[in-house]
Structure formats: C-alpha cells, structure tokens
C-alpha cells in the first residue's frame, strides 16, 4: 500500500521522470509495449433513434457517432448527389480539465481531418445518397460525441465515423411526381403494393438499403518522445509528448493524410516512414476488428429475428 502511494506521489510531482523510467524499460505506465495500441471495440447500432450509429472504445477513449438522415434538394452543380455534414462534439463530461476555448480548436481539427480522410479515401459515394435526380437527396448528418477523452481522439473519431457509415441504413421512401419525399411506414412493408395502387403510377419507391462503402481510411497516432515512437498515446502521455504524427492510410495501404501539428521536435523522413509502417500494422488490426464486430452484429441480428 505504501509503495503504491509513493509511486502515485512520484508520478504527480515528477511526471516526466515517471514516464522516462517506464520508457527506459521499454514499456509504458499502463503496461503496454511502445508499439502496441490499446484494446479496441466497436459496437454497431448503439443508438436506435439514429439511422446509423457506432460506439467505439480505444482503451478508455470512448466515442459515439450517430448519423441522422434528412432530405434536401440537390444543388444545381451536383443534381445527382447527396452530401455529408459532420460535427465533432466534446461535451464537458469527456474530460476533467475545463478549457472550452482550447477544445474548440481541437474539435475543429478532428472534424476536418475526419471529413478529409473520408473524402479522399472515397468511403462514401455521395451519388448513392440520391433519391431522385434534381429533386431529392439525403444529407447525412454525422455527429461524433466524445464521451471520454483519453488520447488519440482523431484515430477513434475516424473509426467511429467509418463504423457509423457501415451501420447506416437508408430508409425506404416514396417520391411523388412533385419531388416530395414521403416515408414508407415500417408496418406497411407487405402493403407496398396497395400503397402504390392507390397513389398515381408515377410514384417511385426507393427500397430500404445499405450503402456500398468504398475504401476505408484507418488512422494511427504516434507520439514522439526523445527518439521513442509511442503508438496510440493516452491523454496522460499526450501531455508529455514532444510531438505527435497522425497517419491515415486507405485499405490498400496508400497514404491519405499525414498530420503533425507542430511540437518541439522536427522529424526526419526516416522517422515518418517508421510511422507509416506502424500505422500499416495498426490498419490491418483495425480492419480485422471492424470485420469481426460487424460479423458479430449480424449474427446477433439473425438470432433476434
């Protein structure tokens, strides 16, 4: 008990030395080796009021992403495409330090990076969000909530976004000749014929469907500290790190984005290549986790039916 108390006090008073002692042993305060990410879980369909949702946990970093669909009139430039609008929220419950102004910058960076990654990977073909050319299309509002901010938020946010899109189902709708979109009531699936019968023959019914997703982007944040590369840092570690490099790769291992927000160390090309290599390893891991969780989700769905 006493030694534990002493360690705790040492950590408080000399956080750097505390961290360094672990690093010199080739390990980290939470017992991980430097190159290992925390255990990751994905829960699909966590929120039933959303059209698609996912709860992602990387260690204790917890994010909840939800997608809500709304109908819009497509723009004149792109009459055959819908669009995606994203926000990233860090409500005060996610972390004990209350500094809203710093949070604002951080959230903007995360949401911009996530959107860029989704666009450049080509995860969602916005043409799939079309309901009726020039008349109606879906806007997918992606809102990511951070429930527990314990480091590597960008990685978790991107994973949550991808998982929410994988869970997204476009509801069945009818489009009348004026271009108004009417919902098909869930109870009336068998009664589709009847509904088509009493309305005019020009009514177009769009079936309930899932999106066909393109290449998925995968992110890994790597912390730099005195020549060490630290994969998936926690908030505690992030506070001590000299700099971080976030690499986003697509499924084929191609580089989508490289993000190094300043910091005290300048990195060499060799170091960046190391980061990319570590990310490649993590990407394979994440892909497997996503596949396994979606498989489990489907199995559960079958059972409940």
């Amino acid at each position: 008990m006493d030694s534990q108390l002493e360690a705790e006090a040492f950590k408080r008073i000399y956080p750097e030395e505390y961290f360094q002692r672990f690093l010199s042993e080739g390990t980290r305060p939470d017992g991980r080796p430097l190159g290992r990410a925390r255990s990751t879980t994905i829960g699909f369909g966590a929120v039933s009021t959303a059209d698609g949702s996912a709860l992602v946990k990387i260690g204790s970093t917890t994010l909840l992403a939800g997608i809500k669909l709304e109908v819009m009139t497509p723009t004149a430039e792109a009459p055959d495409a819908g669009k995606i609008a994203a926000t990233f929220e860090m409500p005060p419950l996610c972390s004990p330090d209350a500094r809203p102004e710093r949070r604002l910058e951080e959230t903007s960076v995360v949401v911009q990076q996530v959107m860029n990654a989704i666009e450049s990977a080509g995860l969602v073909n916005t043409k799939e969000l079309l309901i009726s050319t020039g008349k109606a299309a879906w806007v997918a509002y992606l809102d990511i909530y951070c429930l527990d901010a314990d480091g590597s938020l960008l990685d978790a946010a991107l994973l949550a976004a991808v998982a929410a899109f994988a869970d997204l189902t476009l509801p069945p709708v009818r489009v009348n000749p004026e271009g108004h979109v009417l919902p098909v009531l869930s109870g009336a699936q068998g009664g589709n014929l009847r509904e088509n019968g009493d309305a005019s023959s020009e009514v177009v019914t769009v079936e309930r469907r899932k999106l066909t997703l393109g290449a998925m982007p995968w992110a890994a944040t790597i912390g730099l500290y005195k020549g060490h590369l630290i994969v998936d840092p926690t908030a505690e570690e992030e506070a001590l790190l000299e700099s971080t490099v976030t690499t986003i790769l697509d499924e084929a291992g191609r580089l989508i984005s490289l993000f190094k927000p300043g910091g005290i160390t300048a990195v060499t090309t060799a170091l960046i290549q190391d980061c990319v290599e570590l990310t490649r390893h993590r990407a394979r891991e994440l892909k497997q986790i996503l596949e396994e969780s979606s498989q489990e989700d489907e199995d559960e769905g079958d059972e409940s039916q």
Partner: peptide, 16 residues
C-alpha cells in the same frame, strides 16, 4: 449541465 445528442430524437436536433 444537460444536453441532448443531436441524434437522440426522431428529428435531428439543431441545438443540442
């Protein structure tokens, strides 16, 4: 402080 997630209700909430 009370807030609602934008996707918590039937219609998307503009101001959570």
């Amino acid at each position: 402080e009370y807030s609602m997630a934008t996707f918590s209700t039937g219609e998307r909430r503009r101001r959570p």
